[in-house]
Protein backbone atom coordinates (compact mmCIF):
# COMPACT_ATOMS: atom_id res chain seq x y z
CA UNK A 1 0.00 0.00 0.00
CA UNK A 2 2.67 2.51 1.05
CA UNK A 3 4.85 1.46 -1.83
CA UNK A 4 2.20 2.54 -4.30
CA UNK A 5 2.28 6.06 -2.87
CA UNK A 6 6.03 6.06 -3.40
CA UNK A 7 5.33 5.08 -6.99
CA UNK A 8 3.09 8.14 -7.30
CA UNK A 9 5.86 10.38 -5.99
CA UNK A 10 8.39 8.82 -8.35
CA UNK A 11 6.07 9.20 -11.32
CA UNK A 12 5.34 12.82 -10.42
CA UNK A 13 9.00 13.75 -10.09
CA UNK A 14 9.80 11.87 -13.25
CA UNK A 15 7.14 13.82 -15.12
CA UNK A 16 8.49 17.15 -13.93
CA UNK A 17 12.05 16.12 -14.72
CA UNK A 18 11.00 15.10 -18.21
CA UNK A 19 9.35 18.45 -18.81
CA UNK A 20 12.28 20.49 -17.57
CA UNK A 21 15.18 18.56 -19.05
CA UNK A 22 13.89 17.64 -22.49
CA UNK A 23 14.29 19.92 -25.43
CA UNK A 24 12.02 17.88 -27.69
CA UNK A 25 8.44 19.12 -27.83
CA UNK A 26 6.91 15.65 -28.11
CA UNK A 27 8.90 14.42 -25.13
CA UNK A 28 7.70 17.38 -23.12
CA UNK A 29 4.12 16.45 -23.94
CA UNK A 30 4.95 12.94 -22.78
CA UNK A 31 6.18 14.38 -19.52
CA UNK A 32 2.80 15.99 -19.02
CA UNK A 33 1.11 12.68 -19.69
CA UNK A 34 3.29 11.00 -17.08
CA UNK A 35 2.46 13.79 -14.63
CA UNK A 36 -1.20 13.31 -15.30
CA UNK A 37 -1.07 9.54 -14.84
CA UNK A 38 0.65 9.94 -11.52
CA UNK A 39 -2.24 12.10 -10.33
CA UNK A 40 -4.80 9.62 -11.61
CA UNK A 41 -2.97 6.87 -9.78
CA UNK A 42 -3.06 8.97 -6.65
CA UNK A 43 -6.83 9.38 -6.99
CA UNK A 44 -7.33 5.66 -7.38
CA UNK A 45 -5.14 4.94 -4.38
CA UNK A 46 -7.07 7.35 -2.20
CA UNK A 47 -10.35 5.65 -2.91
CA UNK A 48 -9.01 2.17 -2.45
CA UNK A 49 -10.25 0.13 0.49
CA UNK A 50 -8.95 -3.47 0.89
CA UNK A 51 -11.52 -5.95 -0.37
CA UNK A 52 -13.83 -3.27 -1.72
CA UNK A 53 -15.69 -3.61 -4.96
CA UNK A 54 -16.80 -1.16 -7.59
CA UNK A 55 -19.13 1.50 -6.24
CA UNK A 56 -22.33 0.12 -7.73
CA UNK A 57 -25.23 0.07 -5.33
CA UNK A 58 -25.93 -3.57 -4.73
CA UNK A 59 -27.00 -5.32 -1.51
CA UNK A 60 -24.62 -8.17 -2.14
CA UNK A 61 -21.43 -6.30 -1.33
CA UNK A 62 -20.78 -4.71 2.02
CA UNK A 63 -17.51 -2.92 1.30
CA UNK A 64 -17.32 -0.54 -1.66
CA UNK A 65 -14.52 1.85 -2.58
CA UNK A 66 -15.07 5.60 -2.27
CA UNK A 67 -16.94 6.61 -5.44
CA UNK A 68 -16.01 10.29 -5.58
CA UNK A 69 -12.29 9.93 -6.44
CA UNK A 70 -13.26 7.53 -9.17
CA UNK A 71 -15.49 10.16 -10.67
CA UNK A 72 -12.71 12.67 -10.27
CA UNK A 73 -10.29 10.29 -11.95
CA UNK A 74 -12.61 10.02 -14.94
CA UNK A 75 -12.82 13.81 -15.17
CA UNK A 76 -9.07 14.12 -14.86
CA UNK A 77 -8.56 11.64 -17.65
CA UNK A 78 -10.89 13.66 -19.87
CA UNK A 79 -9.13 16.92 -19.06
CA UNK A 80 -5.71 15.36 -19.47
CA UNK A 81 -6.77 13.94 -22.78
CA UNK A 82 -7.93 17.30 -24.04
CA UNK A 83 -4.78 19.02 -22.81
CA UNK A 84 -2.67 16.50 -24.64
CA UNK A 85 -4.79 16.93 -27.74
CA UNK A 86 -4.43 20.71 -27.75
CA UNK A 87 -0.71 20.44 -27.11
CA UNK A 88 -0.20 17.99 -29.94
CA UNK A 89 -2.29 20.13 -32.26
CA UNK A 90 -0.12 23.13 -31.50
CA UNK A 91 2.95 20.93 -31.92
CA UNK A 92 1.87 19.89 -35.41
CA UNK A 93 1.36 23.51 -36.41
CA UNK A 94 4.67 24.49 -34.86
CA UNK A 95 6.46 21.75 -36.74
CA UNK A 96 4.93 22.91 -40.00
CA UNK A 97 6.12 26.46 -39.36
CA UNK A 98 9.54 25.97 -37.81
CA UNK A 99 10.44 22.55 -39.31
CA UNK A 100 11.90 21.48 -36.00
CA UNK A 101 10.83 19.97 -32.70
CA UNK A 102 13.60 21.56 -30.67
CA UNK A 103 12.25 23.93 -28.04
CA UNK A 104 15.41 26.03 -28.14
CA UNK A 105 14.65 26.95 -31.72
CA UNK A 106 11.36 28.54 -30.69
CA UNK A 107 12.87 31.85 -29.77
CA UNK A 108 11.04 34.47 -31.74
CA UNK A 109 9.52 35.96 -28.60
CA UNK A 110 12.09 37.71 -26.49
CA UNK A 111 12.59 40.64 -24.19
Amino acid sequence: MQISYIAVIILFCLGIYTIISNKNIIKMVMGFTILESSLILLLILISYTPGGTAPILDRQYEIVVDPIPQALALTTIVIGGSVTAVMLAVTIKLYKRYRTLNVDKLRKLRG
Binding site: I19, I20, V103, D104, L106, L109, R110, G111
Partner: peptide, 17 residues
Protein backbone atom coordinates in the same frame (compact mmCIF):
# COMPACT_ATOMS: atom_id res chain seq x y z
CA UNK B 1 16.85 42.24 -17.28
CA UNK B 2 15.30 42.14 -20.70
CA UNK B 3 18.25 40.16 -22.02
CA UNK B 4 17.49 37.40 -19.55
CA UNK B 5 14.22 36.78 -21.37
CA UNK B 6 15.77 35.12 -24.40
CA UNK B 7 12.95 32.73 -25.14
CA UNK B 8 14.49 29.49 -23.83
CA UNK B 9 11.62 27.51 -22.39
CA UNK B 10 13.84 25.20 -20.38
CA UNK B 11 15.39 28.12 -18.59
CA UNK B 12 11.98 29.50 -17.79
CA UNK B 13 10.87 26.13 -16.44
CA UNK B 14 13.94 26.03 -14.26
CA UNK B 15 12.96 29.41 -12.81
CA UNK B 16 9.50 28.03 -12.09
CA UNK B 17 10.82 24.94 -10.35
Amino acid sequence: LSNYHDGKLNKYLLWAT
